[in-house]
Design a protein around this nucleic acid. Structure first.
Lengths: 197, 197
DNA sequence: GGAATGACAGATATTGAAATCTGTCAGCTG
DNA sequence: CAGCTGACAGATTTCAATATCTGTCATTCC
């Protein structure tokens, strides 16, 4: 479509792949489509990604990492651990909700992709619970939280808030009660974590 | 298959429907199959259920109600509210996990059915959170729980434990860490609900 | 000579014609 | 006559042929 003289890099292929996925959806997006969008033969794409699955995995990892990076800023940010924990969980919910609301096609596409790519999602979840563990460990250290095992507490908090970040629940993120539900769960969990003076 | 002289009742049709669903799965189970299993014409089935969708809805409701009935016994059972709350949530998890593990085919079938029948599921969830509300209200009354709005707390607890009863997570119910995860979430939530002396 | 191409074999997806199903209803049956 | 039947029209699903795609690699191009 747009045959440039620019060198063909993995990054350019990933950009084109995301565009093709947005246009055609996960079922109909082909490697041939990606190559056509870049003005190259599909053989050239296979020089950078061994298989179609590897290409899908890379583009999905890139998408998940964009969210993780945003949240990482909050972990090392200012405020006490309770404030940062609230901010982090709220930011995660907001990020997912906006992704789902702003571009439903692409969100649905990535939901399909994450379903077929267990490994990538597992790493993503490990990344996020790692961030949560840092915040909770800080709170445990300062005496604000009662958490003998911060990593276990982080997993519990992440799992208990699944309804507000797991793509499987995306269709409920537009209902009016979701804000109240989120606040209720968040308060319950924070009360459960907080030490009682 | 087994043409009996017994009268054709809605209940007999539902039994046959569940059997056909177990055998053929949700995609291939037809009204003609159900009629054949009962040794009647498919027109007779339509005398009891207006549409195929109504039949599927009725058989699904029946399935969900069986779980709700089991749990209802715990609500009015013995023990203090905290004990009953733990028992109720554990029983819900166990019931779902056994359904999923004992007859995966049928469980997968009902998961598909519940996905297409929003209304029935909504009622089922309302039923279960109603039961939870009773237990939590009892705890609030006795001073064991701090819950200004027991219904809201019940919704929060139900949603926070979604990972352990939502069929969407069924494939994770066989992983080894699930028991620990459940215990961690349960303890966190109960600590969050309990008043601090 | 390192990157890109395009023809190719086997695997996967699309398509449209044929078969089956859903839902109705006039008539049969006990 | 209350309940059941089975033929029927329109909607949906199946199946097999046809077309497209994936992944490879000998060859071309700069």
């Amino acid at each position: 479509m747009a045959p440039t003289t620019e060198t063909l890099t993995a990054e350019r292929i990933l950009e084109a792949t995301e565009e093709v996925l947005r246009r055609h959806g996960p079922a109909k997006a082909t490697v041939v489509d990606v190559a056509r969008a870049l003005g190259v033969s599909h053989g050239s794409v296979y020089r950078h990604f061994r298989t179609k699955a590897a290409l899908r995995e890379a583009v999905t990892k890139r998408w998940l990492d964009r969210t993780a990076e945003k949240l990482a800023g909050i972990v090392t940010g200012e405020g006490d651990p309770e404030t940062r924990l609230r901010a982090w969980l709220t930011a995660l919910f907001e990020a997912k909700r906006h992704k789902a609301g702003d571009d439903p096609e692409l969100f649905a596409t990535y939901t399909v992709l994450t379903d077929e790519l267990g490994g990538v999602v597992h790493e993503h979840v490990a990344d996020l619970t790692g961030q949560l563990t840092e915040i909770i460990a800080a709170g445990a250290g300062s005496g604000a939280f009662s958490a003998p095992d911060p990593a276990a507490a982080a997993r519990a908090v992440f799992q208990a808030t699944g309804r507000f970040h797991d793509p499987g629940y995306a269709r409920e993120w537009t209902t009016s009660a979701i804000e109240d539900d989120f606040a209720a769960v968040l308060n319950l969990l924070l009360h459960g974590l907080t030490t009682t003076p």
